[in-house]
Amino acid sequence: MSDFEPKIVAFVCNWCTYAGADLTGTSRIKYASNVKIIRFPCTGRIDFMLLLKAFSNGADGIIVSGCHPNDCHYTSGNFHAKRRWIMFKELMDFMGIDMSRITFSWVSAAEGARWAEVVNTTVTRIRELGPYVSYKELVNKSVEEEVKNG
């Protein structure tokens, strides 16, 4: 298990977390290279079906991160994301998805160090959990095909 390199996708908003991750770079703070970022204009744009999409494509862990409450570039996108997340979380939990594989956080454009910390703690946690093989067992084949093909 020790040489297991988890695959982690991060869905982040452009204005806070993406910029915060840029700052991690300009500050030359090192973090684990397992996390790869996909940029969205706002967390409000993040359709949580994408999380299932990521798991079905082999993600071991997921980070969703945007602006702190009240700081959303579009004023309220992150509130809608949060609200949707609360509902979706219940549903995913009910479906048997391992919620400890998902990190939901706020990282601002000024929090370069915090981004590194979010990544590192997530990577450590997922490393301990091991590869997410049980997702495959959870989803029956036909559903999986459907999810995979969009």
Binding site: K7, V9, K36, I38, F40, P41, R45, D47, L50, K53, A54, N57, G58, A59, K148, G150
Partner: peptide, 18 residues
Amino acid sequence: LLGYSNTQVYAEVVALLN
């Protein structure tokens, strides 16, 4: 959303993980 369409972000997820 133009520039961040459903097909675009789905394609990104698929590319990134496979």
